[in-house]
């Protein structure tokens, strides 16, 4: 796969480039925007709305609750303190420790899940331009080797992620994308070497 990044001075030319790329047969799933400020979905590109990391949050919450219960109730059970007729496993303390650890694991799980779903951290060099931090807009196109369809998400509609250019050789797809972005007003093109 090769990634090509076009740097645009304004929102309008970046949007024009995306429209032309889609019109040329590139799939929405191949195109993304790089911005230093978030824009609503569809303003530049469309992304899959569905995210899965919240399941990890829930899973971690349950694991944390089990860990908290084991810590509080297990401690009382393993090291019993006989206090009159009070139960060995005290209800309120066990509830409090269970709650706190469940929340701790859920918070940590949210961050871990977020990074996993973003595919971060990434330490290898990827196409990027510091001008994006200064307000420029990056439009990135991922070129797949000729004949290989773009991987679809489950929620994608048929045809949305298999662009008509996929049958062309990668080199030709790349030059077409570059040409379209230049015509739309790209300041420069940053390309990644094929991996």
């Amino acid at each position: 796969m090769i990634e090509i990044l076009g740097i645009f001075r304004d929102f309008e030319s970046a949007g024009r480039a995306v429209e032309r790329l889609v019109g040329e047969g590139f799939a929405e799933a191949q195109i993304t925007s790089l911005t230093s400020v978030p824009y609503p979905d569809g303003a530049l590109v469309k992304t899959g709305q569905r995210t899965r990391f919240r399941w990890l949050t829930l899973g971690c919450f349950i694991v944390g609750a089990v860990a908290g219960f084991a810590l509080a109730a297990g401690t009382a059970w393993l090291y019993p303190v006989q206090t009159g007729e009070k139960p060995i496993i005290a209800y309120y303390p066990t509830g409090i420790v269970t709650y706190e650890l469940a929340m701790l694991f859920a918070l940590a799980g949210t961050i871990v899940g977020m990074f996993l779903e973003m595919g971060l951290p990434v330490w290898r060099k990827r196409p990027y331009d510091p001008a994006i931090a200064e307000g420029c807009i990056g439009i990135s196109v991922t070129i797949h080797p000729g004949g290989e369809a773009v991987v679809c998400g489950r929620e994608a509609e048929t045809g949305e992620c298999i662009g008509s250019v996929f049958s062309l050789p990668a080199g030709e797809q790349k030059s077409r994308a570059e040409e379209i972005m230049r015509e739309a007003g790209a300041l420069r093109i940053v390309a990644e070497e094929p991996s």
Binding site: S36, T47, Q49, L120, R126, I132, G138
Partner: peptide, 12 residues
């Protein structure tokens, strides 16, 4: 951590 500000990164 390699944040680039892609549309998907912002969404998540």
């Amino acid at each position: 951590m390699g944040w680039r500000g892609t549309a998907r990164e912002w969404l998540i």
